[in-house]
């Protein structure tokens, strides 16, 4: 051989394991673990059916059906847990969590309608919330759609502005001279404090909402992009230069990828800030969306609807967070020790 192939005793080239996946496989299948969710669901169902109501019931009673469905799923999952495949491992891993969720639902049912320890109208029982969710599904879906539209516009604008200004301030010395003080002075003001300004500066509530969210997103994204780009190890730039890299290659193919973990931290913080600002913007000027719905229903003391909106919000926001983290894992899976989602 012209050049010997060396070092055969090298680490395995396999992509780094998700530690959790390894842990899951080690969980042994046992009957108590497998049946715990089913037992919990059965207890919830029995309590719900056997105990008398201490509060006026909702117009429809879907909770019994829901618990029965959970019981059926739990029994199926118990069977799956006895299998050895990936699905079985996943079911074993999630079994205690599922048990906890079912017990929490049962406790909610018990504390509200069955024992009446938590009073109406502020603490509706599961049946009321489920009924509200179903009856008002169109308004909720429409609100979620409006929220998403506003959020998407504001977030995209803010993230784009944050990325652009962050890269500029992080890379160029003169941009840093002027930009950094601006970032430091303007950035920490909470976006919601701009409400009075936004209301007079923009032609309509939607535009001012977009602007408020964009400002909220801009600061963390710009700040963390900037610090990520400014902290690129000098050796990476030196090596790239001696490989023939020009300025745009250095910025976009070296500095920005190297800063990605920091950039995603900024995008994550920006998303949190965007949710907050979205809800505030909707309760102030914009008369649509989940925040507006929440405020509206609170005004009529329809707390079942308030909870319904909170559940939708949780799914909505959590879903978007998950999406962001999926994108991050795609783009910067090479980096270890980052926050997990």
């Amino acid at each position: 051989m012209a050049i010997q192939v060396l070092e055969t005793s090298a680490p395995s080239p396999a992509r780094h394991d998700r530690g959790e996946a390894v842990e899951r496989r080690r969980i042994p299948s046992s009957w108590p673990r497998a049946l715990a969710p089913a037992v919990a669901a059965a207890v919830a169902l029995v309590l719900h059916l056997a105990l008398p109501d201490r509060q006026p019931p909702a117009t429809s009673r879907p909770f019994a059906g829901l618990t029965a469905a959970m019981l059926a799923v739990a029994l199926a999952a118990a069977a799956v847990q006895r299998t050895s495949g990936r699905l079985g491992a996943w079911a074993r891993h999630r079994s205690p969590l599922a048990t906890g969720v079912v017990l929490a639902l049962a406790a909610w049912d018990l504390l509200t309608i069955k024992l009446a320890w938590m009073p109406l109208p502020y603490f509706p029982d599961p049946d009321r919330v489920l009924t509200a969710m179903w009856e008002d599904r169109e308004a909720l879906a429409l609100s979620a759609f409006h929220s998403l539209r506003l959020l998407a516009c504001g977030y995209a604008l803010g993230a784009a502005a944050g990325l652009a200004s962050g890269v500029l301030i992080g890379w160029s010395r003169s941009a840093r001279y002027w930009g950094m003080p601006l970032l430091k002075v303007i950035g920490p003001i909470p976006a919601t404090a701009y409400v009075p300004l936004a209301m007079v500066m923009f032609p309509n509530a939607f535009a001012s909402g977009v602007a408020l969210i964009a400002v909220a997103v801009w600061f963390p994204v710009a700040m963390l992009t900037c610090s990520g780009v400014a902290d690129v190890p000098k050796a990476y730039l030196d090596v790239a230069r001696t490989l023939g890299a020009g300025r745009s290659f250095l910025i976009f193919r070296v500095a920005v990828p190297s800063a990605l973990p920091s950039v995603f931290l900024g995008l994550f913080m920006g998303l949190g800030a965007a949710f907050l600002t979205l809800i505030v913007a909707e309760t102030l000027g914009v008369s649509s969306g989940l925040g507006w719905y929440l405020k509206w229903k609170q005004g009529y003391l329809e707390y079942a609807h308030v909870y319904a909106a909170l559940v939708i919000m949780s799914l909505f926001f959590s879903g978007l967070m998950t999406l962001l983290f999926k994108v991050r894992d795609r783009l910067s899976g090479w980096r270890k020790g980052m926050i997990r989602w």
Partner: peptide
């Protein structure tokens, strides 16, 4: 200035960790 005709290698391999 730096250029592709002069390749450089450091004590630290300085591989790009994202690639």
């Amino acid at each position: 200035g730096p250029g592709a005709e002069r390749g450089l290698m450091f004590q630290d391999p300085s591989l790009f960790p994202w690639k």
